[in-house]
Design a protein around this nucleic acid. Structure first.
Length: 933
DNA sequence: GACATCACG
DNA sequence: GACGTACGTGATGTCC
């Protein structure tokens, strides 16, 4: 039973970031022996935690303790002052991957580990210290950070752990010349070069303290500044009064940070030796684990830290796959053995088998686990008994299965344990299956996403592809087990012996891939891409997909009927014009009628020998004949009906009344998402008739849909990457970018701009993003090729950065075999050195990839930050359409959401990339998607 | 299952 | 000098 924090209780607050940086700088750059992961700071951090614990079990031991971390580098202080901490150096590359490990270390030591997005650790510490004091308890802050000294006094003190020196009120006075309640006044005057707090120029701590002690406090000092005798000092204070007041706001800690935990949650907990040893073993800390094992009176873990013999041929490759070695787990005792092994290891590969491919409707059938190569099991849960004489199968469960509920009860703590890493191949699928039965799987690794980060553009990232390529093993195909067509069965009907071999192998393959990929991420320099842009998308997208969007069936159904009628009428008209009946939907038949029977000019046969009858061809013909125009009309309706108004109705989930798409994270080579089943990223908008389909995408009663989209994000990124001053200036001035391009290219003043000239410039702008060619532009604008080439030449002349960018990008791709986004995502270009027509394709793709890919990275960053940023707002993120996010939000909170979400989106590049062009986001809201846009 | 077509950014 | 050509996706219908 937890007691309310109050008198007699004693809280320790450890400044986690200070520990980390001290540990990092105190130790040489150690790496984990088996795979080269940098590990020095984690080692130092663990040592410091252990020393802290050893030193704090005496009579004055704390009753409550927490390690507090910073989270996110953008805080409310950046809102007040954009230069806050601006000259702070970037985190060293080999420290970055160690940060999450220090959090895991804290948890492994069974010490509360807290952080709040958008707040500095100092603010959380201030909040907790003030709360502890208010409740009559005591608090010691373990840090030597002078910014925290304002909190000291009345039951709160600080401990400099390095010097083992307590800092009380007198200690603060020693440092600042004033007592804690005036510390912020002194800091406001003196400023702080480390945090880039300006203060008053020329005034340091000594002078500041002198002034504050003379006048009492900062406000009085500023009001009476004209009384100061020294002329220079007087002028400085008068002149910089605003800057000083701002500085005070920057240094003043926020003791009202919203917390998602309470003081009671921080009660000191007994160590969990198993968890701690597993973590230390994973980190391969020999000495430290022995020392800690001694103090805990347990056996130290056995650490196998033999490095792989050759970097690119790890030994996981050598162990043959043996389906007979896989274990069929059929009862709680057997499962417990596996769970114990998982705890020893600290990680496990997990795979789920289900009744289908749609995570929203498929049911869990069984779970497979793997803890080391070749050692995997399958836990069948609801397989049906097979009976040869019953064609429809039996509802009876097969023998040899433990109860579903019991298995889940045992596995849930493991799957949710923050100190055990769950490894999967396409984890979003499994996470959604588990989420539906109340299990929140975390933390995770995903081999599909690791491959995507390292090999994007080289090949697909499905398990079979990866296994064949990297393990030289073809997994058992699923087809023979399930059959195909009408006689196909679901996995719960697969006999257990076969199911074990198939399912356990998947977990085995996943674990082997993980062991191979994990150390390679660092070498390929894509750790940050994987950890910041790929892996965090899994929970975000899983949540969006599970939420779905409400679609009104009646609206779609009415539109389908209207389309049917119009199509029937058009069909009659078309047959009359053609002189005979034919299948209007057949391009082949249409081509024969147009070019053979009617003898129209301009018939061109493609590589298959059929006439081309695409929209561009028909549009040209439409100026002379009526038939092509009617065909175009019919095709538009046919498209809308079959792909949208009909098909979408079939995708409405009967349980939720909503449509749940699935996003593939690793589908598009550039980093974009792709949406399938159904594709909700290509819902019509360009034509008026199509746009009305968006009226069927609605908000629930009492809510509205909010759409936020980046304005011209790819052109802005182009302006930054290719360094185009004219374009940057135009964006800075908020100009119409296509009109500005037109003005620049055709020497037409902006106030004389015509829509047609602007349209041409717009086509050129897009052409540049796509790796322009004279031919392509000529075809798009329907102008002579020579004229199009003239436009391009002129564009290069007016924006010389473009040519440089294109040449540099092609050269980079040829040299390295990949191109990169601003955030380090690599897109491989295997065909870049090809000869013949392939070469052109590859070059244009290489030019486009960094632009499209950077835009994709930006919105990914925004999406990853969105859940924390919008916490407390009754809103849910529903869809992403490349440069747009769609939310559903309570009516009263729409403006709140727009404010917060826009801020996240516009600043999504910070702090990794400082764009020369600001990103702007347009917002709209309404009862349906058409209105919101 | 390949191909053509067309919806989106 | 000729080749072909805007970048990235997914779903549908026809035809073999």
């Amino acid at each position: 039973m937890t007691e309310t924090f109050g008198k007699g209780h004693y809280l320790h607050l450890i400044d986690g970031s200070a520990f980390i940086f001290r540990a990092y700088h105190a130790l040489p750059p150690l790496t984990r022996k088996s795979d080269g992961l940098p590990i020095g700071a984690v080692s130092g951090f663990c040592n410091m935690l252990q020393r802290y614990i050893d030193g704090n079990n005496g009579s004055d031991a704390p009753t409550h303790v927490a390690v507090i971390f910073d989270k996110g580098s953008h805080t409310f202080r950046n809102e007040m002052y954009d230069q806050y901490k601006a000259n702070r150096e970037a985190m060293p590359e080999d420290l970055r991957p160690q940060i999450p490990l220090t959090r895991r270390a804290t948890e492994a030591f069974n010490i509360a580990c807290e952080e709040i997005e958008g707040y500095e650790a100092d603010d959380i510490i201030a909040t907790l210290a003030v709360q502890a004091r208010a409740r009559g308890g005591r608090c010691t802050i373990i840090s030597s950070d002078k910014d925290l000294m304002q909190l000291v006094g009345d039951g709160v003190d600080m401990l400099d752990a390095m010097k083992n020196k307590v800092i009380d009120r007198e200690g603060v006075h020693e440092k600042f010349g004033v007592y804690p309640e005036r510390v912020v006044d002194v800091q406001a005057l003196a400023g702080d070069s480390v945090d880039n707090v300006p203060g008053a120029p020329g005034i340091g701590i000594k002078t500041a303290a002198l002034l504050i002690n003379e006048y009492g406090d900062l406000e009085t000092l500023l009001e009476r500044a004209n009384e100061i005798k020294q002329p220079k000092r007087r002028e400085t204070l008068i002149q910089h009064a605003d800057q000083i007041r701002l500085s005070k706001k920057l240094v003043m800690l926020d003791a009202d940070t919203p917390l998602d935990f309470t003081l009671e949650d921080l009660e000191v907990r007994a160590p969990d030796p198993g968890k701690l040893m597993a973590f230390l073993a994973e980190m391969e800390f020999r000495t430290l684990s022995k020392r800690i094992a001694d103090t805990l009176h347990v056996d130290p873990p056995v650490i196998d830290d033999t490095p792989p013999s050759a970097p690119d041929a790890p030994k996981v490759d050598d162990l043959p796959f043996d389906p007979e070695a896989y274990v069929h787990v059929s009862d709680a005792e057997a499962l417990q053995v596996w769970i114990d092994r998982i705890h020893e290891r600290g990680y496990v590969a997990v795979d789920t088998e289900t009744t289908g491919l749609n995570e929203m409707t498929a049911d869990l059938v069984g779970i497979s686990l793997a803890v080391e190569p070749g050692q995997a099991c399958y836990i069948p849960l609801i397989h049906k008994a097979s009976s040869s004489d019953d064609l429809f199968g039996s509802d009876d469960l097969a023998e040899g299965q433990m109860p579903l509920a019991q298995a889940l009860e045992m596995l849930k703590p493991v799957l949710e344990d923050a100190s055990i890493l769950k490894i999967g191949q396409n984890m979003k699928y499994d996470a959604k299956i588990f989420a539906r039965i109340g299990i929140a799987v975390a933390p995770i690794d995903d081999t599909m996403l690791m491959s995507y980060a390292m090999h994007g553009g080289l090949h697909g990232h499905g398990m079979d592809t990866l296994s064949e390529r990297y393990l030289h093993h073809s997994p058992i195909p699923i087809k023979p087990l399930l059959g195909s067509g009408k006689s196909a069965i679901t996995f719960d009907k697969v006999p257990l012996d076969k199911a074990v071999r198939y399912a356990a192998e998947d977990a085995d393959v996943t674990l082997r891939l993980w062991q191979m990929f994990k150390p390679q991420l660092h070498r390929a320099q894509v750790t940050r891409v994987y950890e910041r842009l790929e892996r965090p998308m899994v929970p975000v997208l899983a949540e969006m997909e599970r939420t779905g969007i409400k679609v009104d069936r009646d609206t779609l159904s009415r539109m389908s009927n209207a389309f049917s009628q119009k199509m029937a009428a058009l069909e009659d008209e078309i047959h009359t014009l053609a002189g005979r009946k034919f299948n209007v939907g057949s391009p082949k038949q249409l081509g024969e009628i147009l070019f053979d029977e009617m003898g129209l000019e301009g018939g061109k046969k493609g590589k298959t020998g059929a006439y081309a009858t695409g929209a561009d061809v028909l549009e040209d013909l439409a100026t002379e004949h009526e038939l092509p125009a009617r065909i175009l009309d019919w095709r538009q309706l046919s498209k809308l009906k079959s792909t949208y108004t009909d098909a979408l109705q079939d995708h409405i989930n009967p349980d939720t009344g909503r449509v749940h798409t699935s996003y593939s994270i690793a589908g598009a080579s550039t980093g974009r998402l792709a949406s399938t089943d159904p594709n909700l990223q290509n819902i019509p908008i360009r034509s008026e008739e199509g746009r009305r389909i968006r009226e069927a995408f609605v908000a629930e009663d009492g809510k509205v849909l909010v759409a936020l989209d980046y304005s011209q994000i790819e052109l802005r990124i182009l302006a930054h990457i290719a360094d185009l001053p004219a374009l940057k200036q135009a964006f800075a001035d908020g100009q119409d970018i296509h009109a500005m391009t037109a003005s620049e290219m055709f020497d037409v003043p902006l106030d004389e701009m015509t829509p047609d000239i602007r349209r041409q410039a717009k086509a050129i702008n897009f052409g540049v993003i796509y790796g322009i060619s004279g031919f392509g532009l000529a075809r798009n604008l329907r102008i002579p090729r020579a004229q199009a080439q003239g436009f391009i030449d002129r564009y290069f002349e007016r924006f010389p950065g473009i040519r440089t960018y294109m040449d540099d990008t092609k050269a980079f791709a040829k040299e390295h075999g990949f191109v990169q986004t601003l955030f380090g995502r690599r897109i491989h270009t295997p065909n870049i050195n090809a000869k013949g027509p392939h070469a052109g394709f590859a070059q244009r793709a290489a030019i486009n990839a960094p632009i499209q890919g950077t835009a994709a990275d930006v919105i990914r960053r925004a999406m990853v930050r969105m859940p924390d940023a919008t916490r407390g707002i009754p809103a849910r993120m529903l869809l992403q359409v490349h440069d747009e996010l769609l939310f559903e939000v309570d009516k009263g909170a729409a403006e709140d959401l727009i404010g917060v979400a826009r801020d996240v989106m516009e600043n999504a590049a910070d702090p990794v990339v400082k764009l020369d062009v600001k990103l702007t986001v347009d917002a709209g809201q309404g009862a349906n998607w058409a209105e919101a846009h």
